[in-house]
Amino acid sequence: MMRIGLFLLTNLAVVIVAGIVLSLLGVNSYAANGGLDLGSLLIFCAVFGMAGSLISLFISKWMAKRGTGTRIITQPRTNQEQWLLATVKRLSDKAGIKMPEVGIFPARECNAFATGWNKNDALVAVSQGLLERMDNEQVEAVLAHEIGHVANGDMVTLSLIQGVVNTFVMFFARIIGSTVDRAVFKNENGHGIGFYITTIIAEMVLGILASIIVMKFSRWREFRADHAGATLASRQGMIRALQGLQLEQQRAVQSSMPDSLYAFGINGGLRNKLGELLSSHPRLEDRIRALQQGV
């Protein structure tokens, strides 16, 4: 119920903000004489395409904490928590960023994620399973990997790319819908049912194709974050951490992280069923090989 509530709240916020912005810009309709006003259409799509992505970015920490049940460490209760805080502090200083919030989320699988709207207001969290099944060298490398994401600005960049992709998916889907409605359904006086059906189908198809672009960037940033982990911590520790994740995949431990955070986790796991093109993470063997070769 919590995730459904957060989803509805996010979408309601998008609709309200987009409606206000469109009214201020004077863009009330993108239809023009039975066709499309491409300028108004582009503004319409840009507002809606970017709004959802940016709003999700700005509330990402809040959603992450609630979606995963992450407990933020403010006063360390154990030596392990004290070590976590000290390690994140040292790594973030080395990376030249403000120390992120540090948290632990209750999950059996080995995983971790970083999120936040900018590199000086971020959150780094690790799962309880990771702390239980990895040693300090491996955990330090995982933390360094996540801090690498923060220092590289990956959350912001991925959100902007997703927003731009959303914009053009909506834009071209409506052009296709209008063209089919006029050419096939002979509707010259506006947008009929053919427009809406075709637009929905086009958005689905274009959305899948666009996801290939977004996921390609996501896979590339994983290699960069692995390199950061090797630089900030140790190359051997990063390799050992990834090898530990391989063992987790073989055990097929079920994940309890929300799908919306999976692109920001260190472990893509076995959740990506549509193949490598639509996977947010490269294969672990490819990541290990890149580190072993010093790439």
Rank of each mutant, 00 (worst) to 15 (best):
S211V: 05
H227V: 13
I161D: 04
A225K: 02
K216F: 12
G229W: 02
F171Q: 00
R224N: 13
G190F: 08
I161P: 00
R219C: 11
H191V: 10
I200Y: 07
R224F: 01
A183F: 09
M170F: 04
F195W: 07
I175T: 04
N187M: 09
D226Q: 03
N187F: 07
I197K: 01
Q162W: 03
A230L: 06
N187I: 11
H191W: 14
G177D: 04
W220F: 11
I161V: 13
L206R: 03
M204T: 15
I175P: 02
V214R: 07
I161A: 09
S178T: 10
K186V: 12
V214A: 13
H227M: 09
V165C: 10
H191L: 15
S218Q: 06
K216P: 00
R219V: 10
G177S: 04
F185C: 08
G192K: 08
H191T: 11
A230K: 02
F195D: 06
T199P: 00
R182P: 03
I200Q: 11
F171R: 00
T199Y: 00
A230W: 00
T231L: 07
A202S: 08
G229Y: 03
V214Q: 11
I197G: 05
E222V: 07
V214M: 07
R224L: 10
V180R: 05
H191Q: 15
Q162D: 06
N189C: 03
A173L: 00
E203F: 01
T198W: 01
A225F: 07
T198E: 01
D181K: 10
F195I: 14
N187A: 10
